[in-house]
Amino acid sequence: MLKDLFELFITFARIGGLTFGGGYAMLPILQREVVEIKKWATTEELMDYYAIGQTTPGIIAVNTATFIGQRHRGTLGGIAATFGVIFPSLIIISIIAMFMNNIEDSIVLQNAFAGIRVSVYVLILNAVIKLWKKSVVDKTGLLIFLLIFTLSIFTSLSPVLFVIGAGVIGLLTKTQRGERLK
């Protein structure tokens, strides 16, 4: 048990330490570590966690870590994964806060970060393409995707509304068609 919790902690500490740019940028690393290597969740489940993470309070990276840990090893697992994912931030930011002034003035570091941001965009694009293949599987899915993508770029409506709306659409279209549900 303790070994499992430690493995959750270490894995999520690695995920936290390799994520540049927040919750969404964490997705490609999660896909790699949690879905492909550890097989603690499927891509579909990962998407469910992200959707729930959008509607519940708190930041998405923490919500997702708690979720995966809880599903894998219960409440303690959720706590271990969460401590793991915040651990690198605590260390790195504390060190940066101490040396703040030197870093802001370093042109070399600023150049490195500008390069890093570009790679993060490409990684997110790759992750979105993978998600697209698994989630936009019919016309309803395509409609939901286009609607929410457009609305969230051109309006400042809360993502909570989008997620609840999409859930209701999913529920209505499936039950209306009287399809045999899995």
């Binding site: 969404y24 997110i124 989630s135 899915g141 995707f145 969230s152 997620v163 859930g167 659409i169």
Partner: peptide
């Protein structure tokens, strides 16, 4: 299951945007 069928494309759209 049906609810998540709608939630997954929504999740993808939010990440994409």
């Amino acid at each position: 299951q049906a609810t998540f069928h709608g939630l997954r494309p929504a999740s993808t759209a939010l990440i994409a945007s």
